[in-house]
Structure formats: C-alpha cells, structure tokens
C-alpha cells in the first residue's frame, strides 16, 4: 500500500481553544489510484492533504508512506520525501513570478541535485507533456490561469513522484479551463500515476475513480 493511515488526529490550538481538525482518520490509498477527497470547508480535507503530503505531522495515530513510518523521520528526511515522492498542485498555482515556466518546473529537480542539462531537458519534456512546449521561456505573468496551472502540474511531476496531491486545482479557473485541467489529470492517471484531488466541487470529484467524503474531521464514506 502506498499510503496507509491508522486513526490519525490533528488538533490545532486556536488561541486557547483546541480545534480538532481531524478526528481519527484511517485510510488506505494504493499505487495508481485516482482519488478525490471531498467535503465542505472545515471538514478537514486540507489538513488531511497536508498530513498526507508530509508538510505536517499528526497529533496522534500513525501514517505509513511506502511502508515508512512518517513519525520516525526528521525534518531533512521529510524534505527529501516531499522532494522525491510527492508532487503538489495548488489552487493558486504558486509559481515563482520572476522565473520562467521552465525554471519553475526545474525547482524540485534543483533541490534533488540534478545536473543542469538533465534538468533542462526534463523540464522541456514535462512542459511538452502539458502542451506548453512553445511557452517555456515565458514568465508566469505572461501566462493565462490555465497555462499557469499546467506549469504547476509539470512541476509536480518533475521528480517522478509516487503521488501527486492537488488542492482545488480548478478553484481559480473558469469552468472551461477547469475541464481542460481535469482532462490532463485524467490522462496522467491513466498512465498509472497516483493522484489525490482535494475539492469541494462534486463535478471535479466526479473525474476521480474513488471519492472519500470527509465531514467534521471524519471519513463518512
């Protein structure tokens, strides 16, 4: 199993009040699955995504990624794990504005210590994959929202991660562009990539092959 959680909880301190964001989530996601985490805002889906993406650690419970117990890893090991095994796609794209599309795609490879030539070739290949072959040297401010999200998708797949986590990937896009983006995710899933979508949108979640519903920090289905 690629992802396995056992009864994980996450509690935040909001001032002096403890907020339970996740309340005992046990979930398994296998290699090659295309999953949507669905739920209204405040349901804990973003918190779960952060935990699954190793950006955060659970308050209690266990999380195994590729059979490695995440709670035993230190900061550097977590950074390496995020770098090699996990790709992120954000609602607001999060491209670095002063870098070209190609340089943005290269960032994860930069932190992986890949040589320049190899990095550039791989970035070009990835941008071609998302249909931006002729936009490689453009800066984000010269790209449309859909194009920016495609650059972000290329970036997420840069180091051939085991899983890509997409947080409301169409949230900042019009519906037509959103459909295009979902088509790209669909085709990437078809090629055997593991993708986890986080969304509150039924239409978006409908693209996934499995839907996990969250409410009040618990899995409901």
């Amino acid at each position: 199993m690629l992802i396995r959680t056992d009864n994980i909880t996450k509690t935040y301190m909001a001032g002096t009040v403890a907020v339970v964001a996740l309340d005992g989530v046990t979930v398994d996601i296998g290699k090659g699955e295309y999953v949507a985490l669905m739920g209204p805002s405040g349901s804990g889906k973003s918190t779960l995504m952060h935990l699954l993406g190793c950006l955060d650690t659970p308050t209690s419970g266990r999380y195994w990624f590729n059979d490695r117990d995440i709670s035993t890893l230190d900061d550097i090991e977590l950074a390496h794990l995020r770098n090699r095994e996990i790709g992120f796609v954000f609602q607001s794209f999060n491209l670095l504005p002063r870098l070209s599309a190609r340089a943005n795609v290269q960032l994860p490879m930069l932190y992986a210590g890949m040589p320049v030539r190899e990095r550039q070739a791989r970035a070009a290949e990835l941008l071609e994959m998302v249909g931006l072959k002729d936009r490689m040297t453009h800066n984000p401010n010269e790209l449309s929202g859909g194009e920016m999200q495609r650059v972000a998708i290329a970036r997420a797949f840069a180091n051939r991660p085991s899983v890509v986590l997409a947080d409301e990937p169409t949230g900042n896009l019009d519906s037509k562009t959103g459909v295009e983006i979902m088509r790209i995710f669909g085709s990437l899933a078809e090629k055997g990539n593991t993708i986890i979508l986080v969304t509150h949108d039924q239409a978006v979640a409908g693209h996934a092959r499995r839907i996990i519903h969250l409410a009040d920090g618990k899995i409901v289905t």
Partner: peptide, 9 residues
C-alpha cells in the same frame, strides 16, 4: 513553496 517542493531548512 520551496519547502513543499523539497527545500530543507
């Protein structure tokens, strides 16, 4: 973002 993409502290 850099940290999410794998930058260490």
């Amino acid at each position: 973002l850099r940290k999410a993409l794998g930058a260490t502290n």
